[in-house]
Amino acid sequence: MNLNNITVLGSGIMGHGIAQVSATAGYNVVLRDIEQGFLDKAMEKIRWSLDKLATKGKITQQEADSIYSRITPIVNLADAVKNAQLVIEVVPEIMDLKKKVYAELDSVAGKDVIFASNTSTLPITEIANTTSRPDKFIGIHFFNPPQLMKLVEVIPGEKTSHEIVDLTLEYVKSVKKESVICRRDVPGFIINRLFIPMVHEACYMMDRTGATMTEIDSAVKFKLGFPMGIFELADFTGMDVIHKATTEMYLRDKKVILPHPTIEKMFDAKKLGQKSGEGFYKYSDDKYERVALSEEMAQKCNPIQLVANILNNAAWLVSNKASDIEEIEKAVFLGLGLKKPLFETAKEIGIKNIVNELKQLASKHGKFYEPDPLLISMQ
């Protein structure tokens, strides 16, 4: 199949970003939303983004105009998918809403049209089975913002055909992104299965060790090679996103995450992080400010509990044939910005020490912490 026409459903930050990268790669794109006002705003943002690239000399003004002209905003769903070969759905992460959208989409899209859901945690197989084409349904998880982030997780459902997987990987490559395949449709896929539980674990670590937020963040940044601290990263991501992902993942797999009450409390109090002016830290305005972290503070904190958490989840992905070490390292490098491979850090700390830490945590705090068989075999 020669892919030329793409429809993006949902024109928010992710939707208009995916529309822009697709049009930049030469695809004809229809951007669809339920109100014209949403589409007008999205097209303004795309225009601004392309003009900025032209001003910086990354593309010519002529290229910017040409890319913009390849995106057509349409409100009517049947019209929006009339010529589509691939529909990328980017509606909010609410299962009932997604199912409602797909019921409507399935009835108006041609039988050969491929459906791809840009979900970060919801199960692909469950959504796919609500349509008449589970073999033509796939997960395609872009990271925010799609214009800048290189990583795309590709998640086949149980019935997704090999042809659709290959075509999706080709599409990801054509929009100049790097793909990792999550080979099994597991809660959280790869990145969120590693990142979201770590935020909760950092809260437990603060309770249990008495380390301060900035000490933990400094250790995460300077000892573990993260681009920023874990609390800082949570604020940057948004507590609404983290809370939603937590709820969905925990609902489907109690082994993946041990929810800390702080996250829900912050979500309920609208302390969403940078976007609301306060999360774990306070922010004074819209401008992105970095939290003051230092190597000196990092020395006061041993982050082994956090390493044990992220590594146990990584090992679970390998043991359950959802991924392998190489793909996980590629994912954390591109998706979380890790400057040092995860398993390299683990070897420096000592796999034996990590397994012992997990065993101690399990004896004090329950089965959640039991070490994965892979880690035990790596000692």
Rank of each mutant, 00 (worst) to 15 (best):
F195T: 03
Y250L: 02
L233G: 08
V29G: 01
E44Q: 14
S377T: 09
M149R: 14
L374M: 09
T7W: 07
T160P: 00
R133I: 05
K271Y: 13
A23E: 09
A80T: 05
A331W: 05
T237P: 04
K159V: 02
E201S: 08
L272T: 03
N320G: 08
A25L: 13
V307E: 02
S377Q: 10
L86W: 02
A84G: 07
V175R: 13
T72R: 15
M206Q: 10
K340R: 15
Q36M: 14
I310A: 03
I155M: 15
S294M: 05
V175E: 09
L122M: 14
G157P: 01
Q61M: 08
Q274E: 03
V8Q: 09
L105R: 13
G110W: 03
M266H: 08
F115Q: 07
A298Y: 09
D135T: 12
K52F: 04
D217T: 03
I59A: 07
L272E: 10
E344D: 08
I230L: 06
L77R: 01
P341H: 12
L3P: 00
K321G: 08
K221C: 11
D324E: 10
Q85L: 06
S66Y: 14
A331I: 09
K330R: 15
T262N: 06
E215N: 11
F143H: 11
N144M: 01
L258C: 01
V318E: 04
A322M: 07
A64D: 02
G57C: 10
W316T: 11
T160Q: 10
A346M: 12
V90E: 05
G15S: 14
M95N: 06
D240N: 14
K347A: 11
E278N: 07
A308Q: 04
K321H: 15
H141Q: 06
F195K: 08
N144Y: 02
P197Y: 15
K282N: 03
F38P: 00
R70G: 08
E295Y: 04
D324S: 00
F137R: 02
R290G: 08
I140D: 03
D112H: 13
K265G: 12
I164F: 09
S179N: 09
I114S: 02
K367L: 13
P261Q: 00
T121G: 10
P123H: 04
V87W: 06
P73R: 13
R184S: 14
K352V: 05
P371G: 11
T209Y: 12
T212Q: 08
C301Y: 05
A64F: 04
V87P: 00
S132I: 00
E163K: 12
P227T: 02
I257N: 01
T72M: 10
K300L: 12
G139A: 11
E289M: 05
N309C: 13
K56G: 11
Q85N: 08
G210Q: 02
K58M: 10
V172L: 05
Q147V: 13
T119L: 06
L9F: 06
K56M: 12
P123L: 15
I127C: 01
V30W: 08
F267G: 06
K99N: 13
M1I: 09
V175H: 10
I304K: 05
I351Y: 15
A331S: 09
K270M: 14
S179L: 06
H162Q: 14
G188R: 10
A245R: 04
V318S: 00
A211H: 11
S117Y: 03
T7L: 05
S363R: 12
Q379E: 15
E329Q: 14
